[in-house]
């Protein structure tokens, strides 16, 4: 099938330059609202009320965004005169907890093996996780691979609000992984349970079941955000600079 070879060669290189350069191609990320302190009280009130997932909170006279709850519904953006400030970009991953865990770049730096567990994710997180393997994002160029068994895995990628039936498989997968290991929760559901919890059928995020190291918020987080989360594990990229609270200087 020489045709396929030519076809492949003719297509050329499509891979993103990230993380060496920032990827600004159109459509790589839906973006997200950012916290700001420069808002009229009425506009703030309107934004807080409109947010269906209580991700927007009052803070310092402006708004703060709890990214672990934001589901990109665009209701704070569309049909409003004083809409929330929207920021493109995708480096959303952050460490869970205050400080990053012990350094692992030395061990995982050149080859990071990833095991994915779908714990009740809607197809979108699934699809985005699958995309990191496509030619545009191509995780292999960064030394990231998937493994067929958790026995060889360094990182557990978890998506979904942890439906009850997936609690045991998730736990077993985590237990089957050798130490040291890292858990990356991808998506708003995995971070907080999202719109599906709290409920009788789903836990409130991965942290309820197993310890989480890195959270990649987003509904769904775009492939580059997932890559950012994985690069965070191997310390090739810093954590998201956007905290949920607006910077204090701006307020002053």
């Amino acid at each position: 099938m020489a045709n396929w070879v030519f076809k492949g060669l003719r297509t050329g290189i499509k891979s993103s330059a990230y993380p060496a350069e920032h990827d600004e191609a159109c459509g790589v990320s839906p973006g997200r609202p950012i916290g700001t302190s420069l808002k009229s009280p009425a506009a703030v009130e309107e934004l807080v009320t409109r947010c269906p997932t209580q991700a927007i909170e009052h803070a310092n006279g402006g708004i703060a965004i709890e990214y672990g709850r934001c589901v990109h519904c665009f209701r704070c953006k569309r049909g409003l005169d004083d809409a929330a400030t929207w920021q493109q970009g995708f480096e959303w991953a952050a460490f869970e907890g205050e400080s990053p865990p012990e350094k692992l770049a030395r061990i995982f730096g050149r080859s990071l093996h990833v095991r994915f567990v779908d714990a009740g994710a809607c197809g979108a997180c699934m699809s985005e996780a699958r995309q990191i393997n496509n030619p545009y994002y191509n995780m292999h160029r960064l030394g990231i691979f998937t493994t067929p068994t958790p026995r060889n895995a360094d990182v557990l990628l978890v998506a979904g609000p942890i439906s009850d039936a997936m609690r045991l498989p998730l736990r077993k997968t985590y237990d089957a992984m050798p130490t040291p290991k890292r858990v990356v929760a991808i998506g708003t559901c995995a971070a907080s349970g999202g719109i599906f919890s709290p409920s009788f059928a789903a836990a409130g995020g991965v942290a309820d079941i197993i310890p989480v190291d890195v959270i990649v918020p987003g509904c769904p987080p775009p492939p580059l955000a997932i890559l950012h989360g994985l690069l965070l594990v191997v310390e090739k990229k810093p954590a998201s600079t956007l905290t949920s609270l607006p910077p204090r200087t701006e307020h002053a």
Partner: peptide, 11 residues
């Protein structure tokens, strides 16, 4: 199936 049952209709 229904490993991913999230009870959407109930929620």
């Amino acid at each position: 199936f229904f490993y991913k049952y999230r009870g959407v209709e109930k929620i």
